[in-house]
């Protein structure tokens, strides 16, 4: 299960920090910190605060794109957008980090897989406002094709609710990722449990 923050930290006054605190009371997840509005010094600060909280809870913090900040702050992972620094170069420079990438096509999925990344995020599988910039939903069949073709774990993203999670797993997805269901940080442990209720471990 991947929980994504979505550049909401500024707009929601510290949502990412609240989410991290809630994750201390939740089942372990991969928390993707994606705060495009913040400068590097702020992400550095935030990651120093959040990384130990998540580690304690058995979760992993993956910073968006900036593996330098991840290495410097003790975050365990880095999550690359599709337009990031090439995955093979990141893989070499950031040994020891869990590294994944968002992909929206089969070509990108195969490239990321052969670059030695640990996981992929594929989507948007279903319709969701937060993923509209990435085009129309790809659907479950596309998800199934991608999962069959790559040899690393694929997480389904985009409009995934607890109810829809099982269908994604039946297509071969390793897990699911979501952003919108977690905007209510207080309810986070419960929301994660609802997801896990639908995801056989």
């Amino acid at each position: 299960m991947i929980v994504s923050s979505g550049g909401e930290h500024l707009a929601h006054r510290g949502l990412a920090l609240k989410q991290a605190q809630a994750l201390a009371r939740s089942a372990p997840v991969l928390f993707q910190l994606r705060e495009k509005g913040l400068d590097a010094a702020s992400i550095w600060q935030l990651s120093l605060q959040i990384a130990p909280i998540l580690k304690e809870a058995g979760s992993i913090l993956a910073l968006n794109e900036r593996f330098d900040l991840a290495l410097a702050t003790g975050a365990g992972g880095v999550h690359l957008p599709e337009s990031s620094c090439p995955a093979d170069a990141v893989r070499k420079a950031a040994r020891g980090l869990l590294a994944g990438q968002s992909v929206h096509s089969e070509t990108a999925a195969l490239q990321a897989s052969s670059a030695g990344l640990d996981y992929l995020l594929f989507g948007p599988v279903f319709h969701t406002p937060s993923k509209e910039p990435f085009g129309p939903p790809q659907g479950l069949e596309r998800l199934r094709e991608i999962c069959a073709k790559v040899r690393i774990p694929v997480f389904a993203v985009g409009g995934v609710t607890p109810e829809k999670a099982l269908a994604c797993l039946e297509c071969g997805a390793w897990g699911v990722a979501a952003l919108t269901p977690f905007l209510d940080a207080e309810a986070m442990p419960e929301t994660i449990n609802r997801f896990f209720a639908f995801i056989p471990s």
């Binding site: 400068d39 590097a40 010094a41 702020s42 550095w44 330098d68 900040l69 290495l71 410097a72 702050t73």
Partner: peptide, 13 residues
């Protein structure tokens, strides 16, 4: 810059 990663962190990396 002053809004970037601290120089000490960059130096270690």
């Amino acid at each position: 810059g002053q809004q970037d990663m601290p120089a000490s962190a960059a130096r270690s990396l």
